Amino acid sequence: MSGFSPFYCFPKSAALLALALLLTGTSPAQSTSARLVPFRQGTKWGYADQRRRLVLPLRFDEAGPFVQELAWVRIGPLYGYIDGGGNPVTPVQFTKASTFSRNRATVELNGETFQIDGTGQRLTTPPEPEPETEFLTQGDLTRQNGKVGFRFTVGQAVVPNVYDEILENYNGLLFVRQGTKWGVLNNKGKVTLPLEYDTIKAIETNNFAYPVVEQQGKFGYLAEDGTLLVAPKYQAAEPFVADVARVTTADGRSGYIDTRGREYFD
């Protein structure tokens, strides 16, 4: 449920009851919500610290990552937002809700879709255009006999012309393809991940961090050095947002992992 993706839709009902449940009880103060990770135990969700210790209690039916000190939560079929202390920022009233991005989130209420700010107020102005991104080039592609290689600008590393496709990525990594299989090279031209993977996907919105890798229908993640952070084992894997990523296990259970590959679900 990271970024604007899973945008769940449910029939609106029991809004007042959901809000009452959300307001029930007190939560410990927490100013470092960015370090909290959605934690699922059984069918209930709360938030844990980086040692997997429960900080906000298991009282939600689903929970999203903290971005800009705010996170969406679901009680029954409806959504609302909380702060790092578990305090409500909005009522639990939305039939759709997204993770905050660029100080705004998209919600649906009474069949109408609009955006709100960090206080829950409706926004009437469109978002500012995304700043232009200037990609740093590590070197130049070389071509010979229909094959592609790479010559790094810094250092003496040269990748021979043996690949069908080469893509640059963050941290000096190259994604390389031979036939239908992908692998990874570092900025010295050394293989860090063999050409055994069906896809490798990096997303600009999270600065291309921790790309998703696919192998035989299972998904995992790359670490910053181009090796595997998590070997492909998940049924589904979403891009990282605020240092956490939502995954679905082979038996259909959903939860989050952090940038060390630790799982926050039982």
Rank of each mutant, 00 (worst) to 15 (best):
M1S: 10
F4L: 12
Y8P: 02
L17S: 12
A29Y: 11
A29G: 11
S31M: 14
T32W: 13
V37Q: 05
R40L: 05
G46C: 05
G46I: 01
D49P: 06
L54D: 06
L54H: 12
V55M: 07
L56T: 10
D61V: 04
P77K: 09
L78T: 07
G80A: 06
Y81W: 11
G84D: 09
G84E: 07
G86V: 08
T90Q: 00
F94G: 00
A97Y: 10
S98N: 12
N103D: 14
T106Y: 07
L109F: 11
G111R: 13
E112P: 04
I116H: 07
Q121A: 12
E134C: 11
E134W: 12
F135G: 03
Q138K: 12
Q138T: 14
L141R: 14
T142E: 05
F150N: 02
Q156H: 06
D164N: 07
N169Y: 00
W182C: 03
L193N: 01
P194S: 04
D198R: 09
D198Q: 12
T199S: 11
A202C: 08
N206H: 05
Q215V: 11
G217W: 03
F219G: 07
G220I: 02
L229Q: 00
P232I: 04
T249W: 00
G252N: 13
T259W: 00
R262V: 11
